[in-house]
Nucleic acid binder design. Structure first.
Length: 673
DNA sequence: CCTACTCTCATTTTT
DNA sequence: TGAGAGTAGG
């Protein structure tokens, strides 16, 4: 017997052993899912399957890396030939290889959401379309159409103004993306799929290459991803998917729970295995979570089974407002840590909406509780970093007009909107790109004019930069030269009002340069193109200057908590309008996808099942909403938890001596006494 | 080109 | 309430 079958429970073992044919593994929270996946791959290798023919797909790079590490620790270098990648990286790999095969041009630049919005902004500006549309709402619609393989002009009839606006922009969007030689995230899935569906020989090649396909978090796949999977695995049917419909929380991003609900119809005779033994949480937590999720109707019926003891009862604390709720959380954490029961790192505070993090942060600071927020604004969203990235993108792809427009007068060099307009008009007239028009500055603007000289010197700067960066030479050195040629440090000094701000901003520049260096050290192909690809595709978290995993409390959204676990979990803001969120209860005109209560309930379930030992729920009777104090009603999800398994602590009823004294303590610490 | 003001808007965010 | 975007005027 393969050694990867021992120390698994019966269902886990079955999931590992079922090697041929379609397989659906419904892996409940904390049921040892990652273990099953890694063991399954190890087992396949053990059976003599070539690593090259195994494809394991995840959604995040973090998950992919984690899996690779675990697998490597099991089978060592035999893990190397296995393709372990995200959907998007696989898509890019396919596009590249096929382009190479047919000697076609490879995709140049990957546009992230910010870039996509930039394209839309550009179009509305050009067309002088009515302002005031929420471009994000338009982009969502375009993205949904793309994921249903609709071309511009094929969009379904609608009288929704946003549908109409989006349909109007869709065509131009596609044209511009093409002109810029750019692809977006949707293209990375849809284009390879089209390729496979169009060309049977091509499809066969990929199907034969990946004889064994494994998909993690299957509940998060969208229709396009399903079609891609079908093209690869539809024939040999060696497709194992792992997921949990109860943890599908990305419907609003286009994920379709129905994929996992009807897997058995999509792949007839699929074997279905339930992993329901939970190794994470105590009985009380599981019981409460089970009750909540049981209220959903469209799901694979199942129930997590406890394998640990009962544990303390779930607690619900009621405070009179949001600030007091945050104060209560801080005070409880303080107590847990001071009595030595817990370390900060054992504790997480989860919330539906980032807005709740604000009061928490204030409280954490005054109570001197070290914390880290997962998610939040990325370091790569910093203006300083984005500007530099735009220079690199332009160097890699002169047709990337978006980047060109971003950097052409940044830092200011006397090329204002008027000049750019003139250049654009000339470029259009002569049917060339904007970048080429730069060469004709004198002709366009007038010989000897200062603006023309500015354009020329910008062009020369770009050519030097491109030369240094593109010949696979020393990328970090080229970046450094760019920074110095731009006189960035001086520029920042000039535009920063305080020294502190300057230090911070310059710090971002330094960090960026370091990230380039690190990439070049690690990569076996340290080219500019590769670096930019990684930047777009790779989880920024892995690139982010790593903060030491200190002993800190974790603050994060419910979405951000998926896949994590903590001994102690606070789940706050259990109120109607927050969880379920108001946006789900009262959809807006701009919403392309109307969220449903079922997904909100799953969100609640995901949060609850993060807790190993203690689950502490809370709600406030009133909360400041946009400056106004508003009465709040308890979340409907609380009703599912039977009163007898809940310890309710209503702090608005009893201001006991204890509470008063702790409030005094609180006050004292705030005043610094 | 920069700054200071006004206006607007307010979920979640794996790639 | 408060952050970020947009705009007018110096």
């Amino acid at each position: 017997m393969s050694r990867w079958l021992t120390d698994l429970n019966q269902q886990q073992r079955q999931a590992v052993e079922t090697v041929e044919g379609p397989l659906l593994v419904l892996a409940g929270a904390g049921s040892g899912k990652t273990r099953v996946i890694t063991h399954r791959i190890a087992h396949l290798l053990e059976l003599g399957v070539a690593g090259e023919s195994i494809l394991a797909m995840t959604f995040t790079n973090k998950a992919a890396n984690e899996m690779r590490e675990r697998l490597a620790s099991m089978v060592g270098s035999r893990a190397n030939p296995v393709t372990l990648s995200t959907f998007h990286s696989l898509g890019l790999l396919m596009l590249r290889e096929e382009a190479r095969r047919s000697r076609r041009r490879q995709p140049f630049t990957i546009f992230d959401t910010g870039d996509q919005l930039g394209v839309l902004r550009e179009i509305t500006r050009q067309r002088r379309l009515e302002q005031g549309y929420d471009l994000g709402a338009i982009l969502t619609r375009i993205s949904n159409w793309k994921n249903s393989f609709m071309a511009p002009g094929e969009t379904p009839p609608s009288d929704d103004p946003y549908d109409l606006a989006a349909a109007e922009l869709f065509g131009r969007y596609a044209e511009l993306m093409h002109a810029y030689r750019a692809v977006d995230f949707d293209d990375l899935i849809c284009e390879p799929t089209r390729m496979l569906e169009r060309d049977e020989g091509c499809r066969r090649r990929w199907a034969e290459r990946f004889r064994y396909v494994l998909v993690d978090e299957y509940q998060d796949t969208n229709p396009a991803q399903l079609r891609l999977l079908f093209s690869i695995a539809g024939e040999h049917r060696n497709l194992a998917v792992v997921g949990d419909d109860d943890q599908s929380i990305y419907g609003w991003r286009g994920a379709d729970v129905r994929n996992i609900l009807r897997f058995e119809q999509d792949f007839p005779q699929a074997k279905v295995i339930y992993l329901m033994r939970n190794y994470r949480s105590v009985g009380t937590v599981l019981d409460a979570a089970n009750r909540v999720i049981a209220q959903n109707t469209e799901r694979h019926p199942k129930r997590l089974q406890a394998s640990r003891g009962a544990g303390p009862r779930v607690r619900l604390t009621i405070t009179s407002d949001g600030e007091l709720e945050a104060a209560h959380v801080a005070r409880t954490i303080r107590e847990m840590v001071d009595t030595g029961r817990r370390r900060y790192a054992d504790i997480a505070v989860l919330y539906r909406s980032n807005i709740l993090a604000r009061d928490l942060e204030t409280e954490m600071r005054t109570s001197r509780i070290p914390y880290r927020m997962v998610g939040g604004t990325s370091y790569y969203d910093r203006k300083e970093v984005k500007d530099l990235v735009a220079y690199l993108k332009l160097a890699a792809n002169p047709r990337d007009e978006l980047s060109l427009r971003r950097v052409i007068n940044n830092p200011p060099r006397g090329i204002g909107p008027k000049t750019v307009e003139q250049l654009t008009a000339w470029a259009e007239e002569h049917g060339v790109g904007l970048y080429e028009a730069l060469d004709h500055a004198e002709e366009i603007i007038g010989p000897g004019e200062r603006r023309a000289l500015a354009v020329r010197s910008f062009k020369e700067l770009m050519e030097r930069t491109t030369r240094r960066m593109s010949q696979r030479s020393d990328l970090p050195a080229a970046t450094e030269e760019l920074v110095s040629e731009l006189n960035l440090q001086e520029e920042l000094r000039r535009s920063s009002e305080s020294d502190k701000v300057l230090q911070r901003r310059w710090g971002f520049v330094i960090q960026f340069q370091q990230s380039v260096e690190r990439f070049c050290e690690r990569s076996d192909k340290p080219t500019l193109r590769e670096y930019l690809t990684q930047l777009a595709l790779l989880d920024m978290a892995t690139e982010r200057p790593e903060e030491a995993p200190d002993n800190q409390v974790t603050l994060c959204t419910l979405h951000g908590s998926k896949g994590l676990e903590f001994p102690v979990v606070f789940l706050i803001g259990l109120e109607e309008g927050l969880l379920p969120h108001d946006r789900t209860l009262n959809p807006q005109a701009t919403d392309a996808v109307i969220g449903d209560i079922a997904e909100e309930r799953r969100l609640c379930y995901v949060g609850m099942t993060r807790a190993m030992d203690e689950l502490l729920l809370s709600r406030a009777k009133a909360r400041r909403v946009r400056g106004r104090l508003q009465e709040r009603t308890p979340s409907r999800f609380l009703e599912a938890i039977p009163a007898e398994s809940l310890d309710v602590d209503d702090q608005t009823l009893t201001a006991s001596a204890d509470d008063v004294s702790s409030m005094m303590d609180d006050l004292r610490s705030k005043l610094g006494w």
